[in-house]
Nucleic acid binder design. Sequence first.
DNA 1: GACTCCCTAGAGTATATACTCTAATAATAC
DNA 2: GTATTATTAGAGTATATACTCTAGGGAGTC
Lengths: 237, 237
Amino acid sequence: MSCKTTNADELMKTRDKILLSSLELFNELGERNVTTNHIAAYLAISPGNLYYHFRNKSDIIYEIFQEYEKLVDFYLDIPEDRPMTLDDMTFYLESVFDGLWSYRFFHRDLEYLLDRDTRLRSDYREFTNRCLAAISRIFEKLADSGIIEPQPESLRGAMSLNVWLVITNWMAYLKTAHAAKASANLSLHELKQGIYQVLTLEIPYLTPAYRKQVMALREQYRPTMPDQEETREASVN
Amino acid sequence: MSCKTTNADELMKTRDKILLSSLELFNELGERNVTTNHIAAYLAISPGNLYYHFRNKSDIIYEIFQEYEKLVDFYLDIPEDRPMTLDDMTFYLESVFDGLWSYRFFHRDLEYLLDRDTRLRSDYREFTNRCLAAISRIFEKLADSGIIEPQPESLRGAMSLNVWLVITNWMAYLKTAHAAKASANLSLHELKQGIYQVLTLEIPYLTPAYRKQVMALREQYRPTMPDQEETREASVN
DNA sequence: GACTCCCTAGAGTATATACTCTAATAATAC
DNA sequence: GTATTATTAGAGTATATACTCTAGGGAGTC
């Protein structure tokens, strides 16, 4: 998570280097703009070598998705033996957006990817359902802890879905509506302003006891500049 | 809106037929899977003919976007000379989802399209801002009419953005998480269940006077089957 | 040294895609 | 009718893309 490994690590197996570089390139350029030949060239290996390790591009993507899945599942594991704190909630939010950032290529071309790979489609479907269940469970436990008012299950389901929709669409919003120029210059910091939006959804349900605290937390993620961000261009890539 | 014109209309100019068929094919198959040669073949005209009318594929997409923009702008024109009713709100919601349906290819490959066409990028950016402003204005007028409680402007802004995120991501959610098999079988009716989600966002802000009415309205859009929809496959296409 | 197994190079291929070019035809103006 | 303009056909092209195939190197093992 913290070590900034450039892919050219000599200690790494070729197979892992392919996965890592593919993820890097996909995130940077979009899956659609990254060919297997690009990946091979980037790693300075031959296409034949790449295809020795992976049957095709879909297999690379599928394996990257499985890593993503594993990461999110790990973070969204709700401990059932203790009440939930505000810190827990913050951790979940931060983690989810971290994951979204690390595998940000995925949601960009989601529909196309799922059309091309039926394994991926059904896996992703289940993944979504697990996430929705986790979000709903978080709401439930937040209510148990007196942080938000308890809600009937049907409403909780719809609320969880809205949270999911906001989270998974936040990146696209930033890249399409926010940045005026290229889509390259986008930071994890900006992405996390999505937390502000998620907490906005919770506001009406906060208990008086916790309202102030959560509102203060939310304030920490408030977008610095609501709109204009034209000033920085020469940055990444 | 209502006339189901198949594109082979003899009365239509070739240029318009190209636009119409392109939209049809894009919606059905996704822009990424539709080439200019496909479009020409579908219309039974030559590629040369197509390129006589449009310099390139981007120009076709750009013009389709302008139609989309015009449609939504038309529907989201808020009359300032009278208070807003619940029927107005319903009309806005229905209209927005109608537009989303008619140009559904657009949001699917949004990021790629904007990367390829800078005109489109800046136009879309402004389009988004107009939509957000309209949503915010709707909230304001709903408060004026006593349908929802009035909210400070900053909260209204964040709420409007959440509404926008839910609306623009609802289609992707349906296509990726809902349908188990192909992504083809998706109906306008299902899409409009997104209205249920949008109204879910409003619930906490409803005034006692209107709560019942809006909740009843919301109920009309409740998803029929929350999840499993495997049973129908042989349908469209 | 020979055998085996894992890995790699790199040229090559079938297919697709966006787009061009030339010539011809239909429509319109005079 | 003739000139002009708008439209169309259809073959063709440069480039890209996912992927294959053959040959061989390097390291361990007997």
